[in-house]
């Protein structure tokens, strides 16, 4: 059987007894098909039960297990050990740009607040009842927003975004992509309400288009694209409002 001994250097932090994080190394016999999460589970079950991390589905859809793996934000359930250089160790750290609660667990409060701030729900023109039936939405209309509805809230994009690190008030990639998702949905009429957040300084204009968010996204959501499209739309809004005031409703 193809097994590999791999050393995992894992950032540990116990807030009750330590003042700062430290690395701890574990040697794990890895199967060829393993992902980093399997190795963490091996450590937890067999080497050190005190290691804390989040995980659940093991199929890249629950979004729990985002971590920095050799410096890259990745889902540990999708980071195959075979893809890392032979003989080298694998370094695992909690998602950067977030406070460390403990070991590989980060504090998510800021992200959750931002998610809520962008009103990520359908705001209809007129309340629809069950008797009215479903909306008509053509495959083309669905396609407009579908890509931006794939976000699993894994927060890898926030860990990749240097702007979020420097300006923590920035609403950030995932939440803005979600805003765009609802703005583009033919069932929704809430864009004016979301503009307050989007067009504000902490909204799309904080983004300097590094594009790292889209590169690390495990679901090809392309938040960078969503943000640039919203910048264009906001700019058009501004010109319409100031240069053609008669068009204002």
């Amino acid at each position: 059987m193809s097994q590999r001994q791999i050393t995992f250097e894992i950032l540990r932090y116990d807030p009750e007894t330590e003042s700062e994080p430290r690395f701890q190394a574990y040697c794990v016999p890895c199967e060829e098909e393993w992902v980093v999460l399997d190795a963490l589970n091996y450590i937890k079950d067999n080497l050190d039960g005190t290691l804390s991390y989040r995980w659940s589905c093991h199929m890249a859809v629950c979004g729990s297990c985002g971590m920095m793996i050799n410096g890259e934000p990745m889902l540990s359930c999708k980071a195959f050990v075979r893809d890392f250089p032979n003989g080298g160790s694998i370094r695992v750290e909690p998602l950067t740009h977030f406070p460390i609660e403990r070991d590989l667990v980060v504090v998510m409060d800021d992200f959750m607040d931002k998610l809520q701030a962008v009103k990520p729900y359908v705001i209809p023109k007129k309340k629809r009842t069950v008797e009215d039936g479903t909306y008509k939405q053509t495959p083309k209309q669905l396609h407009q927003y579908q890509q931006y509805s794939m976000c699993i809230n894994c927060m890898l994009c926030y860990a990749a975004c240097p702007q979020y690190a420097l300006a923590p008030d920035f609403i950030g990639p995932a939440a803005l992509a979600l805003t765009h998702r609802y703005n583009l949905d033919s069932r929704d009429h809430g864009r004016p309400q979301r503009q307050e957040v989007v067009a504000a300084h902490e909204g799309v204009w904080e983004c300097s288009f590094v594009g790292a968010c889209s590169e690390v996204c495990p679901k090809d959501v392309d938040p960078a694209g969503a943000i640039q499209q919203m910048k264009i739309a906001s700019t058009v809004d501004w010109y319409l409002e100031h240069l053609m005031p008669w068009r204002r409703k």
Binding site: P15, E16, T96, P99, I100, P162, L166, V210, A212
Partner: peptide, 26 residues
């Protein structure tokens, strides 16, 4: 209080040296 979240400081002037994506961007 048992909690004491640890905040990793981001270097204000050399942050873009952290990875090649940022260097490319700069």
């Amino acid at each position: 209080m048992s909690r004491n979240p640890y905040v990793r400081e981001v270097p204000r002037t050399t942050w873009y040296m952290r990875n090649r994506r940022y260097i490319r961007y700069m």
